[in-house]
Measured scan of single mutants.
Amino acid sequence: MALNTPQITPTKKITVRAIGEELPRGDYQRCPQCDMLFSLPEINSHQSAYCPRCQAKIRDGRDWSLTRLAAMAFTMLLLMPFAWGEPLLHIWLLGIRIDANVMQGIWQMTKQGDAITGSMVFFCVIGAPLILVTSIAYLWFGNRLGMNLRPVLLMLERLKEWVMLDIYLVGIGVASIKVQDYAHIQAGVGLFSFVALVILTTVTLSHLNVEELWERFYPQRPATRRDEKLRVCLGCHFTGYPDQRGRCPRCHIPLRLRRRHSLQKCWAALLASIVLLLPANLLPISIIYLNGGRQEDTILSGIMSLASSNIAVAGIVFIASILVPFTKVIVMFTLLLSIHFKCQQGLRTRILLLRMVTWIGRWSMLDLFVISLTMSLINRDQILAFTMGPAAFYFGAAVILTILAVEWLDSRLLWDAHESGNARFDD
């Protein structure tokens, strides 16, 4: 018995066209964080690309023209004298008006014999932002004059995390709450300039795509075929072959399989920071003279006294001054041990922890910024005066060393310790 099946006739004509040209192939790229070699397709503007294995951002879609970056830099340069030299806060102490600005706080630190601690604050609040705007201006002028731009481009990517104007702005709020127990506070004209400078700096850093600047100024022929001998440069993120001198053909720094002496430098910085954190938390970090009496505060006791007036601000200072430094030390110690013992479990967790400490590390400088600003506000000789204690130097040095330890660690070593050939990683 035959089955009668109805015929289905399409209502619209289906047209099949042959592909007349070869589909576009992607360029081969190595991930600078996990060293995976993959094919990167062509990316349009405002599109980002991520590593298929570790999800690290390979290409950032946010990109401004150099002219727009230069305009932002010149605007920031105009704001800087007002943000640093004009009063941020006014207080009335014992019937006398006192003005506080950024430069005055750094000068008070240096004047009291601790120039190293003052230079830490100076670099993060004044030096690094000033280098940022002058570097962008150098790129703008240098591109037109045919100057060598490689050193500036190499420095810009590392400079971003040292620009800490946003953290200093939080420190202004913390210092205001600490001082309000002794005097009446009012915002100064410099505060508005400083807030504007923070906003412009944040926007500029978020749109400063150094890798795209490398592509514009020093374009290189990408690798179009897969080759395990391809290496990625950690300076400019170019994937290719080393030249005859073993250097990256684009930025001219040595092109090595792994960062040289990464573990040794990381261990040295980490152990030194552990040693410095002990006096930083045991010795007094601030000293207040009130009517001839002397009151010393460690980091913890200062947080407890701050909690009596504002528990939320005390929580912020606790996280930045105690929780973050010790968390960074514990995480980095764990990561280094996992590399030495070739741990194969929990790779995803370790990668996330490394990215976390990379982002939060700079916030530990908050305590030094609060001390710097408070020193310029309260300084009335023996009637009422505020000065920093010996722990300030140890704390600042420990924070900087932990930042350097994270920067010096080559994250690809975590993958080397893991089993080879993993296309995915999980716990």
Score class of each variant (00 low, 15 high):
Met1Ser: 00
Met1Asp: 00
Met1Leu: 02
Ile8Tyr: 05
Thr9Leu: 06
Pro10Ala: 08
Thr11Pro: 08
Thr11Met: 08
Lys12Arg: 07
Lys13Ala: 06
Ile14Phe: 06
Val16Tyr: 08
Gly20Trp: 05
Glu21Leu: 05
Glu21Arg: 08
Arg25Asn: 08
Arg25Gln: 08
Gly26Ser: 09
Asp27Cys: 11
Tyr28Ile: 09
Gln29Ser: 08
Gln29Val: 06
Arg30Gln: 08
Arg30Pro: 04
Cys31Phe: 00
Cys31Thr: 00
Cys31Glu: 00
Pro32Tyr: 05
Asp35Val: 02
Met36Ala: 09
Met36Leu: 08
Ser39Gln: 05
Ser39Met: 07
Leu40Phe: 05
Leu40Tyr: 07
Ile43Cys: 05
Gln47Met: 04
Tyr50Asn: 09
Pro52Lys: 03
Cys54Pro: 00
Lys57His: 05
Lys57Trp: 03
Ile58Asp: 02
Asp60Met: 06
Arg62His: 09
Leu66Met: 14
Leu66Thr: 10
Leu66Pro: 06
Leu66Ala: 10
Ala70Gln: 11
Ala71Tyr: 05
Ala71Cys: 06
Met72Pro: 03
Ala73Phe: 02
Phe74Asn: 04
Phe74His: 03
Thr75Ala: 08
Met76Leu: 09
Leu77Ile: 07
Leu78Trp: 09
Leu78Met: 07
Leu78Val: 04
Met80Trp: 07
Pro81Phe: 04
Phe82Leu: 07
Phe82Gly: 05
Ala83Gly: 05
Gly85Trp: 03
Gly85Phe: 04
Pro87Asn: 05
Leu88Gln: 02
His90Cys: 04
Trp92Glu: 02
Trp92Ala: 02
Gly95Thr: 02
Arg97Met: 14
Asn101Ile: 01
Asn101Lys: 02
Met103Val: 04
Gln104Met: 09
Gly105Met: 01
Gly105Asp: 01
Gly105Phe: 01
Met109Ile: 10
Met109Cys: 11
Thr110Ala: 08
Gln112Ala: 10
Gly113His: 09
Ile116Gly: 06
Ile116Cys: 11
Ile116Ala: 07
Thr117Glu: 10
Gly118Phe: 01
Gly118Gln: 09
Ser119Tyr: 02
Met120Gly: 06
Phe122Val: 14
Phe123Val: 02
Cys124Glu: 03
Val125Ile: 11
Gly127Ala: 11
Gly127Asn: 02
Ala128Phe: 00
Ala128Tyr: 01
Leu130Ile: 12
Thr134Tyr: 07
Thr134Lys: 12
Thr134Leu: 15
Thr134Phe: 14
Thr134Asn: 12
Ala137Val: 06
Tyr138Cys: 09
Tyr138Ile: 08
Leu139Gly: 04
Gly142Asn: 01
Asn143Leu: 15
Asn143Arg: 15
Arg144Asp: 04
Arg144Ala: 13
Leu145Ser: 06
Leu145Asp: 01
Asn148Gln: 06
Asn148His: 03
Pro151Ile: 03
Glu157Asn: 15
Arg158Met: 13
Arg158His: 08
Leu159Val: 08
Leu159Cys: 03
Lys160Leu: 09
Trp162Ala: 02
Val163Lys: 03
Val163Met: 11
Leu165Cys: 12
Asp166Val: 15
Ile167Tyr: 03
Ile167Gln: 03
Ile172Arg: 00
Ile172Lys: 03
Ile172His: 02
Gly173Cys: 10
Ala175Tyr: 01
Ser176Val: 11
Ser176Met: 12
Ser176Gln: 08
Gln180Lys: 08
Gln180Met: 12
Asp181Leu: 01
Ala183Ser: 08
Ile185Asp: 01
Gln186Glu: 06
Ala187Cys: 11
Val189Ile: 11
Val189Gln: 08
Val189Asp: 07
Val189Lys: 15
Val189Leu: 13
Gly190Asn: 01
Gly190Met: 01
Phe192Lys: 11
Ser193Thr: 06
Phe194Leu: 13
Ala196Asn: 14
Ala196Gln: 09
Ile199Asn: 08
Thr202Cys: 13
Thr202Phe: 15
Thr202Ile: 13
Val203Glu: 05
Val203Phe: 10
Leu205Thr: 14
Leu205Trp: 15
Ser206Leu: 15
His207Asn: 14
Leu208Met: 14
Leu208Cys: 15
Glu211His: 13
Glu212Pro: 14
Glu212Gly: 15
Leu213Ile: 10
Trp214Lys: 02
Glu215Cys: 14
Arg216Asn: 13
Arg216Lys: 13
Arg216Phe: 12
Phe217Pro: 11
Tyr218Gln: 09
Tyr218Glu: 09
Gln220Tyr: 13
Pro222Gly: 14
Thr224Lys: 14
Thr224Ile: 14
Thr224Leu: 13
Arg225Ile: 15
Arg226Ala: 15
Arg226Ser: 14
Asp227Val: 15
Val232Gln: 14
Val232Glu: 13
Cys233Met: 00
Gly235Arg: 02
Gly235Trp: 03
Gly235Ser: 06
Phe238Val: 08
Phe238Ser: 12
Thr239Phe: 10
Thr239Gly: 11
Thr239Tyr: 09
Thr239Asp: 06
Pro242His: 14
Asp243Val: 07
Asp243Trp: 08
Gln244Gly: 13
Arg245Tyr: 11
Arg247Thr: 09
Cys248His: 00
Pro249Cys: 12
Cys251His: 00
Cys251Phe: 00
His252Cys: 06
Ile253Leu: 10
Ile253Met: 04
Leu257Trp: 14
Arg258Tyr: 08
Arg259His: 11
Arg259Gly: 14
His261Met: 11
Ser262Gly: 11
Leu263Ser: 12
Lys265Gly: 02
Cys266Met: 09
Ala269Tyr: 04
Leu270Gly: 13
Leu271Phe: 12
Leu271Ala: 12
Ala272Gly: 11
Ala272Phe: 04
Ala272Arg: 00
Ile274Lys: 14
Leu276Asn: 12
Leu276Arg: 00
Pro279Lys: 10
Ala280Gln: 02
Ala280Leu: 10
Asn281Trp: 05
Leu283Thr: 13
Leu283Ile: 13
Pro284Gly: 12
Pro284Phe: 08
Pro284Ser: 13
Ile285Ser: 01
Ile285Lys: 00
Ser286Trp: 00
Ile287Val: 13
Ile288Asn: 01
Tyr289His: 04
Tyr289Ser: 02
Tyr289Met: 03
Gly293Ile: 12
Gly293Ala: 12
Arg294Asp: 02
Arg294Phe: 03
Arg294Ser: 04
Asp297Tyr: 02
Ile299Cys: 14
Ser301Tyr: 08
Ser301Phe: 09
Gly302Val: 06
Ser305Trp: 01
Ser305Arg: 04
Leu306Trp: 00
Ser308Leu: 12
Asn310Lys: 15
Ala312Asp: 08
Val313Gly: 01
Ala314Gly: 09
Ala314Gln: 10
Ala314Glu: 01
Gly315Thr: 15
Ile316Gln: 00
Ile316Ser: 13
Phe318Val: 07
Ile319His: 08
Ile322Leu: 12
Val324Thr: 07
Pro325Lys: 01
Pro325Leu: 01
Lys328Ile: 00
Lys328Val: 00
Val329Asn: 14
Val329Ala: 12
Val329Leu: 10
Leu335Met: 10
Ile339Asp: 04
Phe341Val: 10
Phe341Asp: 06
Cys343Met: 14
Gln344Ser: 11
Gln344Ile: 13
Gln344Asp: 15
Gln344Cys: 10
Gln345Val: 13
Gln345Arg: 13
Gly346Ile: 14
Arg348Trp: 13
Thr349Glu: 11
Leu352Trp: 12
Leu353His: 09
Met356Cys: 11
Met356Gln: 13
Val357Arg: 00
Ile360Cys: 08
Arg362Cys: 04
Ser364Gly: 13
Met365Gln: 08
Met365Asn: 09
Leu366Pro: 02
Leu368His: 03
Phe369Lys: 05
Val370His: 00
Val370Thr: 05
Val370Ser: 01
Val370Met: 01
Ser372Ala: 14
Ser372Glu: 10
Ile378Glu: 00
Asp381Pro: 08
Gln382Asn: 15
Phe386Leu: 02
Thr387Val: 13
Thr387Asp: 02
Met388Glu: 05
Gly389Phe: 01
Pro390Arg: 07
Phe395Leu: 11
Ala397Pro: 01
Ala397Gln: 02
Ala398Tyr: 05
Ala398Asp: 06
Val399His: 00
Val399Glu: 01
Ile400Thr: 06
Leu401Asn: 11
Thr402Ser: 02
Glu407Thr: 12
Ser411Trp: 09
Leu413Lys: 12
Leu413His: 13
Leu414Met: 10
Trp415Thr: 10
Trp415Gln: 09
Asp416Leu: 05
Ala417Asp: 08
His418Gln: 09
Glu419Pro: 08
Ser420Gln: 13
Ser420Trp: 09
Gly421Tyr: 15
Asn422Leu: 06
Asn422Trp: 06
Asn422Thr: 07
Ala423Ser: 15
Phe425His: 11
Asp426Ile: 12
Asp427Gly: 11
Asp427Arg: 13
